[in-house]
């Protein structure tokens, strides 16, 4: 068995009085591609964001890249890290790609990709440049290296964002609806890059509305509803033979078009 990179057990997250995650459990082993699907408000993005601590879970167990996240509560009962240094360690092993790209607009494409390796991880500039250029080549944007993000199409920006996530040499990649902000004709170029990453055996967890893509690329699919994983399984089973009515209906409407 390959090692577990992510272990989530009974994870809970509330925003004020609203409980968004009501005890979620999942496991990702090295090389797994997990797809999180579900309607809006089902908690799938929140779950993803808990994995690199952009959201601090209120309770439950969370292990990322083999490191258990230790959470304590302050006097207002707000969750926080017991050891702040854990934040940097966890995040340095997790690359994240956002729905709205979130590139840094004042840095060129190449600078965006090199930013974290040089300024956060202390890589040497020459080394970081070489690595960044090879990543830009891989996403097909070598000739855009000196362009600022504001002058790129959405698909190009998202491919830069993927290169930026790869630049920190992450053990785990998170994608938060990576194609939802794109024009339909630009979706393909981004999916192609993500598919390539899956093919080379990278561990990835993605929140997506692209059901066909999830079916073809994921090794495991989780259907979330109302803050719990209502149904999960290998994509072929889950998509062809959903067990619950809600899952059946969700897949029906999303695979139809």
């Amino acid at each position: 068995m390959l090692p577990k990179l992510v272990e989530v057990d009974g994870l809970r997250k509330s925003f004020g009085p609203v409980e968004v995650l009501k005890g979620v459990s999942l496991t990702a082993r090295q090389g797994d591609v997990l797809a999180l699907i579900g309607g809006s408000g089902s908690g799938k993005s929140t779950l993803l964001r808990c994995l690199n601590l952009l959201e601090m879970p209120n309770g439950g167990r969370l292990v990322v890249n083999g490191e258990e996240v230790a959470i304590r509560h302050d006097r207002h009962n707000r969750p926080m890290l017991a050891d702040r240094r854990q934040l940097a360690r966890i995040r340095s092993g997790v690359g994240m790609v956002f729905q709205s790209f979130n590139l840094w607009p004042h840095l060129t494409v190449l600078q965006n990709v090199m930013e974290a390796p040089i300024h956060v991880m202390g890589e040497k500039r020459a080394e970081a440049t070489e690595h960044a250029m090879s990543l830009l080549e891989r996403v097909g944007l070598t000739e855009k290296r000196d362009v600022y993000p504001g002058f790129l199409s959405g698909g190009q920006q998202q491919r830069v964002a993927i290169a930026r996530a790869l630049a920190i040499r992450p053990r785990l990649l998170l994608f938060d609806e990576p194609t939802s902000a794109l024009d339909p004709e630009l979706v393909g170029e981004v999916l192609k890059v993500i598919r390539g990453l899956a093919d080379e055996g990278r561990t990835m967890i993605l929140v997506t509305h692209e059901m066909r893509f999830a079916r073809d690329v994921a090794s495991h699919v989780c259907f979330l509803r109302g803050g719990v994983i209502e149904e999960e399984g290998p994509p072929r089973e889950l998509f062809s033979n959903p067990q619950t009515a809600a899952c059946r209906q969700f897949i029906g409407t999303h695979l139809a078009h």
């Binding site: 952009l54 340095s92 300024h119």
Partner: peptide, 27 residues
């Protein structure tokens, strides 16, 4: 500043002074 840019910096490990100097100030 669109919050996503700051959040991305968080996700890539920028904290406090580095975040302020490299991302917030120039944008």
């Amino acid at each position: 500043i669109p919050y996503g840019q700051i959040e991305a910096a968080h996700a890539f490990g920028h904290a406090r002074i580095l975040l302020f100097r490299r991302i917030i100030l120039p944008t």
